[in-house]
Write a protein that binds this DNA or RNA. Sequence first.
DNA 1: GATGAATGAGGATTCATTCAT
DNA 2: TATGAATGAATCCTCATTCAT
Lengths: 240, 240, 240, 240
Amino acid sequence: MPPTSLPPTASVGTKRERRKEARPGELLEAALDLFVEKGFAATRVDEVAARAGVSKGTLFLYFPSKEELFKAVVRQNIAGRFEEWRDELDSFVGTTSDLLRYCYQVWWERIGATKASGITKLMFSEAQNFPEITEFYQQEVILPGQALIRRIVERGIERGEFRPVPLDYIVHVVLAPMIFLMMWKHSVGACIPDSLGLRPELYIDAQIDNVLNGLLVRPDPSSPVPSPSHTFSAPPSRGS
Amino acid sequence: MPPTSLPPTASVGTKRERRKEARPGELLEAALDLFVEKGFAATRVDEVAARAGVSKGTLFLYFPSKEELFKAVVRQNIAGRFEEWRDELDSFVGTTSDLLRYCYQVWWERIGATKASGITKLMFSEAQNFPEITEFYQQEVILPGQALIRRIVERGIERGEFRPVPLDYIVHVVLAPMIFLMMWKHSVGACIPDSLGLRPELYIDAQIDNVLNGLLVRPDPSSPVPSPSHTFSAPPSRGS
Amino acid sequence: MPPTSLPPTASVGTKRERRKEARPGELLEAALDLFVEKGFAATRVDEVAARAGVSKGTLFLYFPSKEELFKAVVRQNIAGRFEEWRDELDSFVGTTSDLLRYCYQVWWERIGATKASGITKLMFSEAQNFPEITEFYQQEVILPGQALIRRIVERGIERGEFRPVPLDYIVHVVLAPMIFLMMWKHSVGACIPDSLGLRPELYIDAQIDNVLNGLLVRPDPSSPVPSPSHTFSAPPSRGS
Amino acid sequence: MPPTSLPPTASVGTKRERRKEARPGELLEAALDLFVEKGFAATRVDEVAARAGVSKGTLFLYFPSKEELFKAVVRQNIAGRFEEWRDELDSFVGTTSDLLRYCYQVWWERIGATKASGITKLMFSEAQNFPEITEFYQQEVILPGQALIRRIVERGIERGEFRPVPLDYIVHVVLAPMIFLMMWKHSVGACIPDSLGLRPELYIDAQIDNVLNGLLVRPDPSSPVPSPSHTFSAPPSRGS
DNA sequence: GATGAATGAGGATTCATTCAT
DNA sequence: TATGAATGAATCCTCATTCAT
């Protein structure tokens, strides 16, 4: 392929055009940060624009109103990753105990430890102000998430690894600690860092141990859960 | 009963004076409702005043600013009930397992199921906007609450009922599900009632079972926790 | 009636209360002036408030939006005076020629020469931006006004004073000059005063003469209309 | 035909160049429409550009500001046609009565019924916002127009056809109905079509009849004006 | 004490104008 | 030349706070 024949327009476009395509994403990211930190009403659109490096007017070029910006922030950050996870889950080879542990870890690496976790805090804070978005969140995040957990627990029961627990509440037992962690990280935890000495990885390990203890058919009585002594790939020194 | 022996604050004074004394409380209650529902910034002081049945001007007679109103709302609702609880705990006679169960139930009856739970949601939502109050909350609520739980677990370990688990994270294991429940109740749960079929009492039972499973030295292998099949005194039909 | 027994509250109320009642009127007057002068879009609500002697916020205490202020301005200034005029007309004693002349004069004194005439200019300028109000204006002003004129001409024909002209267009012949005068006064005439030497009273006389000339059965051939040599009660030297 | 001999402005140039030359005209036409319909302040330059089929930036290539665009719209549409009309008038053969009638008709065909009439509405609406342009309009349109009418009436008087009326106001008697018709057409008439049954041609006939009645030395007493029973060349069925 | 009319700083949104491409 | 993304001053409107009654 001769280099000279490369069509000049095939490169991603002019600097300006590239900015134009990048703008919405930059704005959404800035908005996510600020909405999570201060809430919807307390966030000024000027701030969002400034953080995205544009002027106030530019924001309205991409989003017709502050409220639509909010909706876009939520929508963008809950782009259904559940199919992908479900596939990962279905093709997992190993004990369900390891699968559940893997799930917690992956969730923390991809969601909990990233900005995306802010959406959860945001939704809990603003749910009553945006019922429409809340409904959407329920359909797109909560229900699929619960289904995923239920599927894992069912796998464990089917394979004789887990006790035949009632499924309806076990999903909450599994999920509640994760959600709490996200809320904590984006609220009290952001204000008073390390005040509790709450290090996410250790917190997660403890929760996994506890959950598996309740689920496993025959936990080792001496060490209740065969804890793999914390094998996160996320940097273990950073908690929030 | 002779009227003169009545305690002076009991009934003396004109209706107006009694109103006057009741005013701050009515305003605080109205403010709590609205702050929890909509957040601090999205709540209008007119609304608060209207819900308390007074005019906007009157509100500023009792609270110098909206922000001070907010602080007062938080302060009022976390008036240290911990001493009382600690006494209750210290005088408890019975297994630590029952004590923990009793704690969950009492907490739900007195906090979780009441308006007071809204403060938790409020603090998580507004923590970063009011770091000063967050610090206060941390000192007055979070740390005492954790100490209480830690004390219970220690009791169990000392008495040989619980396994000698590391204490630092067990408090989170115990508390996180409760906090999650409050958040849920005041956000998504308020928007989409019963959508998950999350009935608080059953949810709490499941969490107790799970926690005790991880703590008890010798859980019954067939039914891992001697679940008392739900003995709430709160009406079991109402979930929120 | 003893003077001391006058109820103290019968006086119009406190200064503040009187202001409150006066405010809407003052705002409407200020708004009328500015809307007529600059048009709806070019008028700033701050200007309206300033001219009424209040702050911007106060305006929105009385009118929920600039658009509602506009509607109120139009509505207020077309309060149906037509019934009163119709009564005046029906009880008029004298020739229809004198009646028509009287009508022109009264119209000029009460509408044309006053601020109320601004509404006509405003409606013509903004009709297409406010179709709803235009429809209202049509029903409440244009049609009743035409009916009034038609009634006068019919009176003249019935009494044998006027020729049996077709009525459908004679109303326009009578009205168009008056409307033109109002438009002129509030636009070009306000910019270039007296540039044309268009003195309203003389203009009106000329139009009356012309109209009557077309209507009268037997106009005096030498002096086509028995012009009463201008007997306005309005100060004849100032036209606008 | 040698290309070099072609007149440079006649037809040479690419399509683009022709477009380029047409641009200002297209923009002016679009601007006229919108200014007349909505007023200056309520018209967005984007709309003007869009209606002319160009981008917003292009508009500013041809007109340095919205205000200059406005001025250009007015100027373009009052390009002195008065010389041409004056010549037509001077060479007219026939009674002055016919001349006046001819004038009304020609005016309606060339101005009243066309977009150009919008300028009149525009000027009346915006006069006070653009005094400079108003002065220009006065000089270029109003005064020449009045002179034309005055010239016609003088002709009638000189030839003994018209009574020796005072000239100063007769011009208003002649012009006011025409101006009213344009205003009507572009405001209420555009909103509530045919609501009055005001058909321009009939309206004009009625006005001519009325005016001539006041002017003619010896009107036919039975049919006061020798009305030529409507001989418009414009399609009589459509009025606006 | 209680009211609610008045205020005006502050915030969301618009839109004429600029300018890099 | 033409574009349309970007700008930010200007504008409508809100709402916490004040204060005369």
